[in-house]
Structures are given as structure tokens and as C-alpha cells.
């Protein structure tokens, strides 16, 4: 079988049928043959650009490589074992999951609610639909710094109103009790518009006619939402959920800008823990297992949710 495949007679069949026509010039045929590789090249380069650091990192994680020492020796799984034995790691994992869960929940609920309100043809909705894109143009770090200013005890504009409702000495990010709350508020403030835009796009792409039928059939808005909108919107909701979960599990910039993992280690997520190990304390090889663990977690969560998404898509289309 393999000999026939490599025999000269079968070679022309590897070309597109027009390419085998004798009238065509060989230059043209060559161009045709290289075209697929040319089209693939950018994706290939991108993949290589991701894979080289990824594999290099995995290799480094088996060594005692450090940024302030020149000799490197192979130490096997020591970095992994010490990570699993460190209470800092488990604490950070808990913080990471807590942060991702709280942010995603708040943003999804708020985002879907606001999107439903904006999916209407009044002047306010029309105006807000355009304005919504603005927060997404601001870097999360800038957004966080704005919040720092807003809640600043001496110049912040939120201090007055907080005092009026009897919370004048609310510490925001400065207290371990309210640091996580502050982070969730900022994350929700930065990313809820993203959820709104995706869900709104989903809502507006739903077919109109079933809603006319529902108008005549009757039923409360909640009844229509539960029976019609939710199943048809489920694929969009799940994709939005995947995006938000992936990004909030990995979130670095907001936490770094607002609390730097503090006070103490109250908001020390895996990203920050790894960063702190790698750079201020030069332990790059120690930090890598944490990032790999985080990568595996994100991969697993997305994999499961994408499975749900496929099923939801079939259900929405009425296939399954």
C-alpha cells in the first residue's frame, strides 16, 4: 500500500485536478502547491510563538533556575512537590476560585439584567447601547486607578455618600474584610459592559416571530423569559461565561493595581503569588508550577463549559 502511494504515477493526484492539466505552466502549479502553506503561515508562526515559551517554561520548572544565580541544575519534581506542600499555594488557589466565582456571578447576573433592559427601542436604551462600549476601551489598570481615586478617603467622591448612609469609615481595599468585596466591585465595574454587549448581541439576533407568537399566547415576562428566551440565549450565555471565567481566574492587573494581593495575603491570587515568587524574589522556576496549575484549571473549566455550550446550541436550534 505504501509503495503505491509513493510511486510516481500517483503523484499528480496530490495536486488539485486542474493542476495536473498539461497546458498549465509549471510556475502556476508551483504557486498552487505552496498556497495552502502560505495561508497557514501566520497561524503557524503564532502557534510557535506560544509553544516555545510554554515548553521552555515546562523545562525550566524541573530545574532550580533563578534570576539571581547563574548555575542551573535539574531537580525533577521538587518544585511541584514543594508547591503542593505549601499552604500559600492552597490559600492562593482558594482566593483565585473565590474571586473568579464572585466576579463571574455578579457580572453575569448584572449583565443579563441590564442587557434585557436595554433590548428595547426607547431613547435611553438606544443611547446607552452606544455608550456601553466606552468602558471596554479603558485598560483595566486605569479603571482600577480611577476606583482608587473614587474611594480615596481624602479626595474620593464616594466618601460623602458613604458617610451619609453611615459607612463613612468603610475601608475598601485597605481592610482584609472588604478587600475582596472592593476587587469584585472594580472587576464588575470594568467587565460588566463586556457581558452586556455579548448578551445584547445574542438577544438581538434571536428570531422575532416566536416573540410575536408569545405576545398572542400571553404569559408574564418571566414566563416568556424562562420558556423561550433562556433556552434560545443559552449558547451565548455559556460562551460569555467561558470568557469571564477564563479571564477572571487569570486576572492579574486589577488585583495588582488595587491591592497587590494584600492587605497581608488577603487577596493573593495564584497569578499574584506566582508573580511575587518569580520577580521580587527571583524564584522563576518555583513560580512556573503555579502558572501551569492555573493553566490546567482554566483549560478544564473551559473544556467542560464548551461541552455544555455545544449541547445548549443544539437545544436552542431544536435539534436535540
Amino acid at each position: 500500500m505504501s509503495t503505491t502511494l509513493s510511486s510516481p504515477q500517483t503523484q499528480p493526484s496530490a495536486l488539485p485536478p486542474e493542476g495536473s492539466a498539461s497546458k498549465e505552466s509549471s510556475a502556476h502549479a508551483r504557486r498552487r502547491r505552496f498556497r495552502p502553506y502560505l495561508v497557514l503561515a501566520p497561524a503557524l508562526i503564532l502557534t510557535i510563538g506560544i509553544f516555545i515559551p510554554f515548553i521552555a517554561a515546562i523545562c525550566l520548572s524541573f530545574t532550580d533556575y533563578s534570576l539571581n544565580s547563574s548555575d542551573v541544575s535539574f531537580i525533577g519534581f521538587d518544585n511541584y512537590l514543594s508547591m503542593l506542600q505549601s499552604s500559600d499555594f492552597w490559600h492562593s488557589l482558594g482566593i483565585t476560585i473565590e474571586y473568579a466565582f464572585l466576579c463571574t456571578t455578579v457580572e453575569m447576573l448584572l449583565g443579563v439584567g441590564v442587557a434585557l433592559l436595554l433590548n428595547d427601542e426607547n431613547i435611553v436604551a438606544r443611547f446607552l447601547r452606544i455608550v456601553l462600549i466606552f468602558p471596554l476601551m479603558i485598560a483595566p489598570v486605569i479603571g482600577t486607578l480611577i476606583w482608587k481615586l473614587i474611594t480615596n478617603p481624602s479626595v474620593g467622591i464616594l466618601v460623602g455618600p458613604m458617610r451619609m448612609i453611615g459607612l463613612g469609615d468603610f475601608k475598601w481595599a485597605a481592610s482584609p474584610d472588604s478587600a475582596m468585596f472592593s476587587l469584585v466591585v472594580v472587576d464588575a465595574w470594568v467587565y460588566t459592559p463586556f457581558v452586556i454587549i455579548l448578551v445584547l448581541a445574542g438577544l438581538r439576533s434571536l428570531p422575532k416571530s416566536p416573540y410575536e407568537a408569545a405576545l398572542i399566547d400571553g404569559g408574564s415576562p418571566w414566563f416568556v423569559f424562562k420558556n423561550l428566551t433562556l433556552p434560545m440565549l443559552a449558547p451565548v450565555l455559556l460562551i460569555t461565561l467561558v470568557f469571564r471565567l477564563m479571564l477572571s481566574l487569570q486576572e492579574f492587573s486589577i488585583i495588582f493595581a488595587l491591592t497587590e494581593g494584600g492587605p497581608g495575603d488577603a487577596t493573593m491570587s495564584l497569578s499574584l503569588q506566582a508573580y511575587n515568587r518569580a520577580f521580587p524574589f527571583y524564584g522563576l522556576a518555583e513560580a512556573i508550577p503555579m502558572m501551569l496549575f492555573l493553566w490546567a484549571l482554566v483549560y478544564l473549566v473551559s473544556f467542560i463549559l464548551i461541552g455544555f455550550w455545544r449541547r445548549a446550541q443544539q437545544r436552542a436550534a431544536g435539534v436535540a
Binding site: 428570531p207 416566536p210 407568537a213 399566547d217 404569559g219 420558556n227 433556552p231 436550534a317
Partner: peptide
């Protein structure tokens, strides 16, 4: 008190035929 059969059917895609028919009755 009207029933309308739509030109493009306008059935509820995620619902089974049974639930399509029951939609109005459930809503009431």
C-alpha cells in the same frame, strides 16, 4: 381571544411540539 397561525410558522424552537401547543394554556 384571537388565535393566529403565522405565515412563517413562528414556532418556539427550543420547545417540543407538545410544549409549543401548551404554551398559551400554561401562560393562562
Amino acid at each position: 381571544g384571537v388565535g393566529l397561525a403565522f405565515e412563517n410558522y413562528a414556532l418556539y424552537p427550543p420547545l417540543k411540539v407538545r410544549d409549543n401547543l401548551a404554551f398559551n394554556l400554561r401562560a393562562h
